[in-house]
Nucleic acid binder design. Structure first.
Lengths: 131, 131
DNA sequence: TACAATTACGACTTTATAAGTCGTATTTTG
DNA sequence: CAAAATACGACTTATAAAGTCGTAATTGTA
């Protein structure tokens, strides 16, 4: 409930670590260091690379490095890259077929809360998480 | 992910409805009106009554009514009454045994985020949700 | 005082989602 | 070409949310 998934946790841990290192870091290196399952760490880093938060270099001697400044990396984007869109209730973006459709009295206000929540996480950057 | 549980959704729907009504409302009446499973609706109302957001009157002709002003009902309290403490990651309040304990680089910053998030929801009252 | 309507509450089952695993392909260095 | 790394989809397992069921307690009214 209102939980940040473990994947996002792992993603933030990795981003912080990459920020603290100058050189390329291997996926396995990070997963071992923090006790994160290797396959999961790998996929998260792949996702972050696709979204251009980090750069991946394939092959032997490959690895990942941060390519954005910490101020340009905010929590909302990280969450959405890893877990998909922030959606506090299913009805707001229309995923769940809602038995309350038509009579529901909270959709509008909650859409508003959701928007504010996105702003909330947009305002938290890697700079804040490094402190 | 960062989802408000359906129970909280139901709770807010009920609170809004109680606010819109002058007289006592029965649990079944609300559950039927909004297509919410009756047993679940009942338990949520019981919880809200225990927490003194609403008053319960037992027996025939019983029901529930709002006993606080909408400005005194905020979303953080509603969430916590229904689902328990807001906890964005398990480690922050020490629930999960964390394999990263000792090396984890995000616990402090995330505790901070969590605190801010609680403030965020404290600032949203039933007044905002009625709009 | 018996009955109907309601709240109260705990135990259980089902369903959905998150977390983790496995297998295989691709890229690059030496 | 072998070794070390990323890339990616399919699958299984674990956990939590959602919903159901059974029973007890309270109260108004015929």
């Amino acid at each position: 409930m209102l939980k940040i998934s473990r994947k996002v946790e792992y993603g933030i841990i990795a981003l912080k670590y990459l920020h603290s290192q100058d050189s390329l870091c291997k996926s396995k290196e990070i997963s071992k260091k923090f006790g994160i399952p290797t396959e999961i760490m790998a996929k998260i880093l792949q996702g972050l690379a696709k979204a251009r938060f980090i750069q991946s270099i394939q092959g032997a001697k490959g690895g990942y490095k941060l390519v954005r400044s910490p101020a340009e990396i905010n929590m909302k984007d990280v969450i959405e890259v890893i877990d998909g869109p922030i959606q506090i209730v299913d009805c707001v973006l229309g995923k769940r077929h809602c038995p309350q459709a038509g009579v529901c009295n909270i959709q509008g206000p909650l859409a508003n809360v959701q928007e504010k929540l996105c702003e909330f996480f947009s305002d938290i950057t890697l700079v804040d998480l490094v402190k």
